[in-house]
């Protein structure tokens, strides 16, 4: 078990260093991608800033509270974007073009190969803007990070990332049955928009839906509200861990079922 894990870590390191070399090779691409995802987030921040020129607070949430939630949302999203971007391709043309066959031929788990296949530096832009926003909002909003809180923050980010990855894994695995599932993946992924703002603004149905069914609320608002003093640690962290592990379990199950069901397009 342990030697296996060691082998996988070593392999991932090799894949990653190979990738970083390629990234450094085309530095303009890196900068363009970085700027693109930076700019996309800038639009959302500008929106919040413009709106707060008109109102003192939003249903009791201050400008900095909103920035904190918005920033938090970007960190797990960006990390997931960096490491599991290949799932978008799996949902796209990988199955149809018969590319998946080669992952079945190698003596490593196919999911590991898929993850290691691609490192997407575009996600770095999202992570950096997320961290900047969280730091800025914490300083301005008077949120003090003790070492324990910082640790809790990191743990929450890890489990929030797992939620992103699991949702992508479940939906891209559908492609094993339907050949392509990119549009469905895009549709559900778009629901992460809801998580960038306080849940209270939504109808109860939407709140329940994005907490328990497509649990994006756990990637931003629910963990972030602990730091904003609006929710207990037990509730924020407990719920995030519980649901993220459930989602991951489901994701892995569906992926493995999908492989069993997979029929090569042949040639």
């Amino acid at each position: 078990m342990f030697t296996n894990a060691k082998r996988y870590i070593k392999l991932y390191g090799m894949f990653l260093s190979h990738y970083l070399k390629a990234v450094m090779h085309s530095r303009t691409d890196f900068i363009i991608g970085f700027l693109a995802f930076f700019l996309i987030q800038f639009g959302g921040i500008a929106f919040i800033a413009l709106v707060f020129r008109q109102i003192p607070d939003l249903l009791g949430w201050s400008f900095y509270d909103l920035l904190f939630i918005y920033g938090f949302a970007n960190i797990p999203r960006g990390i997931d974007h960096m490491f599991t971007d290949y799932l978008w391709l799996l949902a796209g043309n990988v199955i149809v073009e018969g590319e998946f066959d080669r992952y079945l031929l190698r003596p490593i788990h196919p999911l590991f190969q898929i993850i290691a296949q691609r490192f997407q530096p575009d996600g770095v832009g999202e992570v950096i803007i997320g961290i900047l926003l969280v730091v800025y909002a914490s300083i301005k909003g008077g949120i003090i990070f003790s070492p324990t809180k910082l640790l809790i923050f990191i743990v929450m980010i890890i489990f929030s990332t797992i939620i992103y990855t699991s949702i992508k894994l479940i939906l891209s695995s559908i492609a094993f049955w339907t050949k392509r599932s990119q549009s469905i993946l895009f549709m559900f992924y778009s629901m992460s928009e809801f998580a960038k703002y306080p849940l209270e603004i939504y109808h109860k149905f939407i709140r329940t839906f994005i907490t328990y069914i497509v649990p994006f609320a756990l990637t931003a608002y629910i963990p972030a509200s602990y730091f904003l003093g609006a929710s207990s640690l037990f509730k924020s962290l407990g719920l995030t861990i519980l649901i993220s592990l459930t989602a991951l379990f489901l994701g892995l199950k569906i992926f493995n079922l999908g492989i069993k069901n997979y029929e090569s397009v042949g040639n």
Partner: peptide, 27 residues
Amino acid sequence: NFYVYILGELFQTVVLIYIWFAIFSSA
């Protein structure tokens, strides 16, 4: 596929309307 994509894009519009509702109630 087209409709499924559009549905995804419409979520942003739904979010916007909810935010405006909250903004107008706070103003």
